[in-house]
Design a protein around this nucleic acid. Structure first.
Lengths: 193, 193
DNA sequence: CGACACATGTAACACGTTACATGATTTG
DNA sequence: CAAATCATGTAACGTGTTACATGTGTCG
């Protein structure tokens, strides 16, 4: 629901039209997550369906202006007023991947960790490089800085976690699990009952 | 696509049926993201449609066993072989929220940060509490430990980021932006052309 | 028997994403 | 004029999510 709320936030400053919303959304977040223009219109339609926005009028240039409604302001206030909960967050694909690499037979977990480390490291370097880059356009530079820092912090956390995993695996290698004796991959345990 | 690949990973150890897949998936990830049983069947159907799995046979107990196909093994190998890319990851709702709180009029950004900090802190405490909890069932304890650590690392990163944001805001408060003089929230800038 | 867990499946919906169609306007 | 950009919209599809329907087996 981040796009929906994001558009509501922009509309809370006054009526906007579709293209303008995309431009301002990307300006505010530093275009970290490019927003397809079609998505803006579908999201606006659904928000209108739900009574959060309404069509205000038409521009001098014949552009369709959307206005936030009272219900929309309520939804926005609820968004800003409460935290982003755990349950709101999507599954962490990397964590799932590693956890399942452990139970899937014939997967070189250490290699998976290494590949990810390389990619995350490259990502992290790119982000830090951007930090010192001469930011051209003025304006909502602040938001992009915050988003960028968020990405950096999470990438660093991921690097640390990968180190952690590697250490864990190294320890597990020294104290190996008995593992399945024969080559019978087929039947492990049925679901417990 | 994490669920799809997750099921493929489990099926790579041999044929499984729906309920079993859910049980093993949750066991491997520590039930961090509870998996609705309906989701398992729809995902299996779609994977079958795409030729990644096929129905193997029926159990002694009349349960429908799915088997991974060669194409499924290829897809799985590609998943494990490559990193989780940036573009694969969903939008970070918290970062978007903060970035837009900066540009939305009349939002107390510092309060948003504080509310989030409280929630994340509580989350972090719960996670560290779980770390020392006496884990009952044996088995795939390792995966859950890794997932839990991942959550902890990311929660810590979020706390640090929130501190960072607060410092940023405090600095901005000492060097305030001119801000809009009158009460005219309506029209900011049109999209640049 | 009745309640409960197991087991499979379908239907409907949400959001996000892409591709496409259609004009108007600008610009080289 | 031709190409590009602006601007709005629609159609189709993907995954994820929930609710519901249905039947079987078990256990008190």
């Amino acid at each position: 629901m981040s796009i929906r709320h994001g558009l509501l936030a922009l509309l809370s400053a006054g009526p906007r039209y579709g293209y303008q919303l995309r431009a301002e959304f990307e300006a505010a977040t530093g275009a970290s997550w490019p927003l397809n223009i079609g998505q803006v219109y579908t999201t606006l339609n659904r928000a209108e369906r739900d009574g959060l926005v309404e069509i205000a009028e038409t521009d001098p240039q014949n552009r369709v202006l959307y206005r936030i409604t009272a219900a929309g302001r309520d939804a926005l206030a609820a968004w800003f007023g409460g935290p982003v909960a755990l349950t709101d967050r999507p599954r962490d694909e990397l964590a799932i991947k590693l956890a399942l690499a452990l139970v899937a037979p014939g997967v070189d977990v250490a290699r998976v960790v290494q590949v990810q480390r390389t990619a995350t490291m490259r990502h992290l370097q790119e982000l830090t490089r951007l930090k010192t880059a001469p930011e051209a356009s003025g304006g909502a530079e602040l938001g992009w800085a915050l988003v960028r820092e968020s990405m950096i912090f999470h990438a660093e956390a991921e690097m640390r976690w990968l180190d952690h995993c590697e250490a864990y695996l190294a320890r597990a290698a020294r104290h190996p699990r008995p593992a399945v004796p024969a080559g019978n991959d087929q039947d492990t345990e049925a679901v417990r009952r």
